[in-house]
Simulated scan of single mutants.
Amino acid sequence: MFFTYPIAATNDNWLSSTLLAVLHDALVALQHGEEPLGFQASVPEPYKSEFARCHKFPALYGAFVETCRPLQAEQRDDIVLALAGQNQFPELFAINAPSHGIAGTLPTVHDAARSLFEYAFGKLSDLKTPGSGETVRGRYHHLVHDHFASGCCPFCGLEIMEAPDPDLVDPDLDHYLAVSKYPFAGANLRNLTAMGTNCNRSYKGAQDILLDEQHQKAECFDPYGNEHVTLSLDGTVLLPGGGAGPAWALTFDPDLKSLNWRRIFKLEARIRANVLEKQYQMWLKHFTVYAKRNGIDIAGKDGAIEAIAKFKATCDMESLPTVARLKASFFALVENALNDPVGGDRMHNFLIESA
């Protein structure tokens, strides 16, 4: 990821933590041969009034309990492990961590949990933390928007997400671990990420972020962690010859850990088609206009070198972070080529022709 989410945005996580505790207590009661409490009786006092507004919770909770009632003790132990394990953030992102899925072994329990937590996820837009004037989702949206200086999706750095405004539609709130596979994390803010519409609907969808294309456990970023990916055009050949445009090379650091993220979000293809091939000639025009407006004559190579050195410092003013990084990297390559005693004249001629 190019940047990460503020952990403060997960503070109002009482809906998920309450549901998980209620289900855990019901499973423990069944294990001891006792009758679980009713749903509303299980909810802690501070949240009773909010849960009471959501009329489907008791029935969905009851359906979950009934699917667990006839099971063997060992099976209920597996459910307890899944309930905790699917919410073990950030430990579950480790490549050797188990995924704790139960869809294959206990499909009816999985489906009951999914129904409950999908309903709970929808209620994030309605319920308010006691004492707050905003819904849980509204508060989350404000905190994330304030944290992201560019307002861009951190998975691509190319798509602006809508700002908090009553006249605008909130950005997609993606289940980082898909609710279809990890239902117990379906309302956990630690598993939810505001995401650009294209990234969410066209690329990620319900793909399992923890698995690679061979369905093996893969390296995975923690969206609320501190690890960021850097991007450059190191290795690009600007003038490959034969009248061809640049032979682009994209360098991500870290490389291996970012591989699955890049695959799921089709980053290389999107960057090549939508940014590099589409915009690099426009960038060159930006450069020539800049040089002219600043009175720098690029007809001579020394003038071109002076102009490039000054112009590349403006590239980080691009509003889209990924475009800013690529543009700065592109002109760093141009500057190196101009200063190359062997290929400098060729690059200078290319800049003059592009003007």
Rank of each mutant, 00 (worst) to 15 (best):
K266F: 13
Y280E: 06
Q279Y: 04
Y5F: 10
Y280C: 11
P98C: 12
K204S: 07
A59K: 11
P183N: 06
T108K: 10
L158S: 12
A299W: 11
A9Q: 00
G138A: 09
L71A: 08
F331W: 04
K48Q: 14
T105L: 12
S42F: 06
F2H: 02
T197E: 14
V169N: 13
F148Y: 05
R114V: 11
P223G: 02
D302N: 13
D146R: 03
T197I: 13
H175I: 02
D174Q: 08
T129N: 00
P171E: 10
L256V: 12
H110R: 02
K285R: 15
F148P: 06
G186V: 04
T10N: 01
Q216P: 06
L233P: 03
Y47E: 02
R262F: 01
L284Y: 02
F330R: 01
S99P: 13
A332Y: 04
I7R: 07
A309V: 10
E74M: 10
S232E: 08
P107Q: 03
F311E: 01
G101I: 12
N349W: 11
A112Y: 01
F39H: 06
Q281Y: 07
F51S: 10
C199I: 08
K181Y: 04
D77R: 15
K48I: 09
L158E: 03
E45V: 10
D302F: 09
I352Y: 07
I352F: 09
P171T: 04
G295R: 08
G186W: 03
V275Q: 04
M347T: 12
N11D: 15
T314Q: 08
R201D: 14
